[in-house]
Amino acid sequence: MRETVVRISGLTITVVYAVLIGWLYARQPATIAEVTGGLSAAIGAYHVDQQAFEDGLQFFRRDQFSEARAAFARADPAQRNSRTQFYIAYSYYRQGWGRLYQDDELYRQGIEAVDRAIALAPAGRIVVDDPTLRIHTADELKVELDTGMRRDASDLNPLRIFRERK
């Protein structure tokens, strides 16, 4: 009887440990916060810090994008919330946008963030109902960022200076 208990316990522990290792290899969390956040999200216990998120929104609307990202990172330390990641990507877009040129590095980070947001959202669909934004879906934001990174003849169009930031 005791042997059976030991064998079943060992098997259970081994399977759980193996699944955890497989999850770590698949997700590649870079920080302890991402590990704990990912594990709590797996059991549905992960929550965004609402106060920090609201702080981030206030900064975002005042065009203080670095401060906004710091607050969003505090709100979603494990990078598990698609809406927060959408705003982070949007902050990279707005900060990197220029009438004559875009900041490629910020746009690249924006693409990474919007890809994270899409991966986290159910069925990859994100619609943010925020009247202060001009882009409401992750798909539009991703296209905007991708377009900014592309080099083509339209970059030489002088009418580009009349376009507006979204």
Partner: peptide, 14 residues
């Protein structure tokens, strides 16, 4: 022992 086979060896290897 069953403990070595079921617990220690798999956990060490993992």
């Amino acid at each position: 022992t069953p403990a070595r086979e079921a617990v220690y060896l798999p956990l060490m290897a993992l």
